[in-house]
């Protein structure tokens, strides 16, 4: 067993874990954060994407012990005071999901992308989410949602969206 201390969605957790425990298992089975899902189990699909110290990672390809001392942000830590994060809201507004299984990872990766590139072209969005597979939508509305979120998160956009965006960046966005 190894002792780890990790900040997840703003709260500090201390736990003994087996070294072989994957970060995604720790989040789901130990902390009950089932918003982060396991998709392919082969590091391809990106459904389990979370932010580790501000960088998107596939939490099935990180050991829980490797998150010792780190900050983790999951899909469950995005909402602020009952308000969805602008990227969550944009996925809702643009019908950017059908079955919804890829959505937590898509949203976490989209936030990472927008932290890096606040105004991506369609091509840049597609490149930015190339590690996230969706088997329902054909990606059309996902790309629209990311661009919609980008426009709403720009400085000078609606005050609520802007405030939400700033808080999220501070909470571990790229």
């Amino acid at each position: 067993m190894a002792r780890i201390r990790t900040t997840v969605d703003g709260l500090v957790y201390e736990d003994d874990v087996e070294p072989r425990m994957l970060l995604v298992q720790y989040l789901r089975e130990r902390l009950g954060k089932t918003g982060t899902v396991i998709g392919c189990d082969t590091s391809n699909c990106g459904a389990c994407t979370v932010h580790l110290d501000g960088m998107s990672v596939k939490s099935c390809s990180v050991l829980a012990v490797q998150a010792n001392g780190a900050e983790v942000l999951t899909i469950e830590g995005l909402e602020r005071d009952g308000q969805l994060h602008p990227v969550q809201q944009a996925f809702h507004d643009n019908h950017a999901l059908q079955c919804g299984y890829c959505t937590p990872g898509m949203i976490m990766q989209s936030i990472d992308l927008l932290g890096d590139n606040p105004d991506p072209t369609e091509h840049e969005v597609r490149e930015g989410i190339e590690g996230n597979l969706c088997r329902c939508t054909g990606y059309q509305n996902i790309v629209r949602a990311v661009q919609d979120a980008a426009s709403k998160m720009k400085p000078g956009a609606a005050p609520t969206a802007e405030a939400g965006a700033k808080q999220t960046v501070a909470g571990g966005g790229a």
């Binding site: 994407t49 390809s61 930015g128 190339e130 590690g131």
Partner: peptide
Amino acid sequence: VADPQVRHR
């Protein structure tokens, strides 16, 4: 190489 998440790690 791979995708952004993999390139981060």
